[in-house]
Nucleic acid binder design. Structure first.
Lengths: 355, 355
DNA sequence: CTTAGTTATGCAAACGTTTGCAGAGGTTTT
DNA sequence: AAAACCTCTGCAAACGTTTGCATAACTAAG
């Protein structure tokens, strides 16, 4: 019913800041002590105040447009309601669904998320420290390498942490990831079933769990199919980018011109494989089949549409958030390592090898 | 040189929280008053304390691993160093570059960003309020419709605001956007130059500036080319999605089977146009040329590669952040409306109409 | 009618900073 | 030598909450 909105906003240049009402304003308006207001407005404490008083307080709070100052409350309680997320590259199409899952679950629990894009030159430890200085109640790390100092650092700071998508070698903290070995084996088995035997792998960075595990899955799958170790062709890309995939694929084709199929550790790498095949004048899938990993959006629009392995990205984020919340509530909770099942999506980039 | 990291972290289960050192710890270690420490550590105030004392304080602060509690400082100063970003859909590939630009510029200025994905069912006003309650120093709105209540709401709350990508009808607050009319005219002129005359438009939502302005640009371009108003074919999609684009394109083709080209208001809509053309058995570009808008990633991998209009997304975010910072520093600063120039990117989806 | 118990409220301290004010000691000016 | 002025540091209040403790007013039990 506040009809002077307009004049207020008009006058904001000259007038002192209209500064939002505080708990004291509500208290004096109601003729009660601030602490009573605090209790009345806190679901956990409101049973301590008489029903009629509580109702009156809630009414005037609403009338004044009172919103508690979360910063002040956080100072007192030691909890900020903030969670930090360290992201490898927010522009990577694989990341937003994960982030969406994280943010949604946290939002429901009353937490807000601060996302920090670490980028190729940022220091995760430094950025984690900045977030900790901001008082975040927990950290979601989507960036860690296998032996990442940031993990130890967070443990030393005794702040709840959960890894998502990638895991650390020591399994020191809880994590949620797709079953990377199984994912690649889905791809390999699919190609084997089509009749391929000479399959190469464009691997991801080997200092990252996804890169290492997917490679391991590839090699295991090939070995199990009876391919001798020395015939198993792998080229690792230094990063999950289209350009790195192109370069690795070119190296692979140079070394092994006889390949009939390539499994990429990631869809972006697979895009690079497409580029390399085009450069070499090789048709996909007629001459070389290609499989990606992750099922990033719009792969069905490529020509040919990319066969890939779908991972449960949104669920990954969701589970990670829940693990983190559990840890915030009880810092000594068990450290779970959640592994989600991947799913093969067959499209047009894979076919039986030519005669 | 802290060698008891390990034992500390091991004991964290039983021991009380190792709680980071405060300004008082540094002060008593140095034998000075906390206020002196505060001054020594604040670049703006450090000239008030003797050089040798300041140096000693900085040294012990570093030795103790002291990091100021930003929450507490924020409570005192009224500034949180936090900026909120309201995003329409974080999974939309067009958004991350904008966000990247925003976050980078703010990070450099010492601000952290809280990104909130509004989604189709979220209430921007409600979410903005939550952010304000969190004490954000400013808001970047990437979601506003032409007559969006959230704008008035933020003005009433007298919190610095800047719009990005989209603008409000009243131009009440500063904004940064691409020149949407000009962008579509680049597309139209390109098609006209190729010889097309019967061009249709799959427009975006008409309650959003990008949708309305791009449509206006389309109609102006066609009118200027001498096409009578009643022959100008437009179908608006209710959202910027592939599926909405497909449906709108089908309606358009139903009404005007004679079209030789379609301009989509957005690349996602253009993907839907591709779908519709495939369904109708129409070849692109031979039978129908298609132009998108925004130049989202990997469009060059489509078949045919999509001709589109590139907009300066990252710069958009960067400029928006700077505008917001200026407004935070001086709430009465001029309200600029920045308009960035778009650029036509010609690929394979456009060709001269058939004879 | 005391005693114990319950319920609703007030009081005041605390969270970790920042900053206006005041004062101590020293140096320059008159 | 007094006056005026720096330069540096300490004091204490304030920011807006939350919460342990005390207390007052009742109610119930003995």
């Amino acid at each position: 019913m506040n009809h002077n909105h307009e004049s207020l906003s008009r006058r904001r240049a000259k007038a002192a800041a209209p500064s939002r009402p505080t708990i004291k304003d509500v208290a004096s308006r109601c003729g009660v002590h601030p602490s009573t207001v605090s209790r009345a407005l806190s679901p956990a404490m409101s049973h301590l105040v008489a029903d009629d008083v509580a109702k009156r307080i809630r009414a005037t709070a609403a009338a004044l447009g009172y919103r508690p100052n979360i910063t002040a409350a956080g100072l007192r309680t030691g909890r900020s309601g903030l969670v930090g997320v360290l992201a490898p590259d927010i522009a990577d199409p694989n990341f937003p669904p994960v982030l969406g899952g994280v943010a949604e679950a946290l939002h429901e629990a009353g937490y807000a998320t601060i996302v920090v894009d670490v980028g190729p030159h940022g220091s995760p430890v430094e950025l984690a420290d900045r977030l900790i200085a901001r008082g975040v109640d927990g950290l979601v790390l989507a960036t860690v390498s296998l032996h990442d100092p940031v993990v130890e650092h967070c443990i030393d700071a005794s702040i709840p942490v959960v890894l998502v998508n990638r895991t650390d070698a020591g399994k020191l903290v809880p994590s949620v990831a797709s079953d990377d070995e199984a994912g690649i084996r889905l791809a390999v088995d699919h190609l084997l079933a089509l009749g391929h035997r000479r399959i190469g792998h464009v691997a991801g960075p080997q200092d990252i769990s996804t890169g290492a595990l997917r490679r391991a899955g590839f090699e295991a799958g090939m070995a199990q199919a009876g391919v001798p170790g020395e015939e198993i062709a792998v080229e690792a890309a230094p990063g999950y980018t289209r350009e790195a995939g192109r370069a690795a694929a070119l190296r692979l084709l140079e070394r092994r011109p006889d390949l009939t199929a390539i499994v990429a550790a990631n869809d972006l790498l697979a895009l690079g494989v497409y580029d390399a095949l085009a450069e070499r004048g090789l048709n996909c899938p007629n001459e070389v089949s290609v499989v990606g990993h992750n099922d990033m959006p719009y792969l069905d629009m490529l020509s040919p549409p990319l066969t890939t392995v779908r991972i449960a990205q949104r669920e990954m984020g969701d589970r990670a958030a829940r693990l983190l919340l559990a840890q915030i509530r009880d810092p000594d909770a068990r450290h779970d390592h959640v592994v989600l099942a991947p799913q093969l999506i067959v499209r047009g980039s894979t076919a039986a090898p030519r005669g």
